[in-house]
Design a protein around this nucleic acid. Sequence first.
RNA 1: GGGCGCGUAGCUCAGCGGGAGAGCACUCGCUUCACACGCGAGGGGUCGCUGGUUCGAUCCCAGCCGCGCCCA
Length: 798
Amino acid sequence: MDTLYKPQGVEERWQKIWEEEGLYEADPDAPGETFVVMHPPPNISGSLTIGHCLQLSLEDTLVRWHRMRGFNTLFQPGYDHAGISTWAAIGRTLAQEGRSQRDLGRDGFDAYVQEWLERYGGTIMSQFRLLGASLDYRRTRFTMDERYYAAVMRWFVHLYERGWIYRANRIVNWCPRDRTALSDLEVEHEDTDDTLSYIRYPLADGSGHVTIATVRPATILADVAVAVHPDDDRYRDLVGKEVVVPFVERRVPVIADERVEMEFGTGALKITPGHDPTDFEIGRDHDLPEIAVIGADGLMNDAAGELAGLTQEDAGRRVLDWASERGLLEKREHYRHSVGHCVRCHSRIEPLIVPQWWVAMKDLAAPAVAAVTEGRVRFTPDRFARVYLDWMENVRDWCISRQIWWGHRIPVWYCPDGHVTVAETEPRACTECGSADLRQDEDVLDTWFSSALYPFATLGWPEETPELARYYPGHVLATARDIIFLWVARMIFSGLELIGEEPFQEAVIHSYLQNPEGKRMSRTLGTGIDPEEALEPYGADATRYGLLKMTTGQDPRFSWGTIEEGRKLANKLWNASRLLLLAGPVEPAARPSSVEERWILARIEATRAEFEADLAAFDFAHAVQRLYHLTFDDFCDWYLESIKPRLAEEDVRATAFAALERLLKLLHPVMPHVTEEIWTNLPARETRLIVAPWPEPETWEGELDALESAQTAARIYRRSGVRIKLDGDSARIFEAVVRPTDDGGGDLDAERARVQKEIERAERMLSNEKFVANAAPEAVAAEREKLAQYVAERDALG
RNA sequence: GGGCGCGUAGCUCAGCGGGAGAGCACUCGCUUCACACGCGAGGGGUCGCUGGUUCGAUCCCAGCCGCGCCCA
């Protein structure tokens, strides 16, 4: 054994052995309470980020912990086709060759994407393995594989038959770059600098004008009304009159609607149902026409007449010029407001009225709200339950159709007569007229429509498989907060609707790593950290440890120092085991005969209980910190040092190996490789550590503080050279651990003064009558205890 | 516009009513027979600011200031 632990090679070897020996496999026929974690399937549009590794580390820690405790565990791997995301990524690659997705044709694109899939899918699975994630790789699923496709079709038809899927011509978020509709969740609002133009709309009867303010003058061409608030005294007399829309010189009514903000601009709002979501709603309620002057490409369309083909900016300038020439442009001012952008390509979202497929959310949402309010699904940290509920309680209908070629094609067919046939598999004839001339809807489904089924589609649903019976519902779902609505919420309502049970009990919302400079990690900006930058030099164990320490807070910065801490812990364990192995292997057996032996067993036991409590609360950072402290301070610095003089005794070594075994077991879920490597070197191995039984609770009462007097004496001696009087075990342990090199002496006065200060502080507090009267009894007792200890210390100093 | 989170040692972060902590970095001592990628010791902090509650506030409350995020 080398004096330095080198993870390279060791980790890869164990990863192969564990997988080849079938130790990652979930067996639905095996006994045991189940524990199921569905790992969120990464997008095949890219490789893993360090953030994925953080998520995987905490999941794998839970999975390995449960596996050792005898649970029948399923840790499910897979990857996601990631609709628009992959579509856009492929588009970027093709663009470099001067081509686009649509140049390939639908079939050509399918072929291209298959290659893409093999390349990225393979990379992702190999990165999972590199981290030591104990996923059941045999079960790897893809959200567009054949069986998964069948599940998605069933889901669509189910919702359709329920009457909750409908096609409607409504305003949607349109990305003019990718030329597809998006759901509300795929739009992000960004503060944008704009110019607010104040334009006069003359009254048709010539009695004056109304001034409106707009940031999008080009849309004036599609105006169908001017709206004011019903309580707005300034405009009360105008309601019911008509105004003339500039440029197009169309007469439109002035209407009253409560959705108008009186404070904005002049309080009069131009209504453009074709190009604004609020105006669309107002328009529908007032039966206004819907005019579209902007096309799918974001440019002015034919309805814009002489402005057709212009960009909105150019068209807007023409409109403003027109108004200005006629004295209708009152003023222009700077205006900063938030504008919707495509979450992927950052194009400015174009609200357009286009026919799309929708899911009515009302009936799906109600049970999903109840699941959380009734505590059947819990969030950690629990404040995210509120975030979830706020969204779910106010959820709007979900636009699920996308105008791209990558995804699950909508299972709807049209005959020449326009009849609609909805079926899970391709129908032979129109269900209404029997026509065999069927044309399938061109659109594909929102990628999240299929991801929503992940917790059961991966288990074989809609077939009644043994896996589905055994592993649904699952237990822990770990994810970052950015997909609470997109995915977590949708899994909950789909699971409730289709299976009748929520898909997991615990939604663990983990931290979102920032890069060391505090910036958001982004692959495209090059501000991210490639997992292999950590895995290669530090090893998976160190990386896992470090990442788990970074799970606190909301947006911790990635820090190499934390990974380094993990590497040191691995090395420390390695060398502690070397000490014992070099002293002479002997079968492990806890036969403690001294106070320090009982003490370490008690410390390990106490840490086991605390560690379990941390994991149960998903507090990974504190969990690993405990292990570090136990290993360095308790096990190495005190226990091993104190038994060194007696290492020749077989019982002492047997106990030490037994203690080491327990320590390795506690560390295994966090650092699986180094612990397994050491474990396999211990005498009398019968099983792999990965499936070794988790330590049972033990009782070592009254031993937790057994080393306190020796430790206090060590602190004083090391600081000042002053020896305090010790006897019996404490004296022996002090000698063994501290190995004092002189007879003491030292600065006795300084030590006395220090202790005296402490005594005075405690006495001062205890002489404060208000403290004694008002403080919690425990606080007062603790203070008395401290005083007693310092008095004892003073006496020991002599 | 509404909501959430965070400002603690040079850095990354714990602590969240009763003497300010860890790891890294820094300084000093030690080649000690597991580990010098080690061991031991030390320096370093008006706990963002201002008020309030309390016998006592880094911790609770209010208001500011600064960062980050979500929803509309």
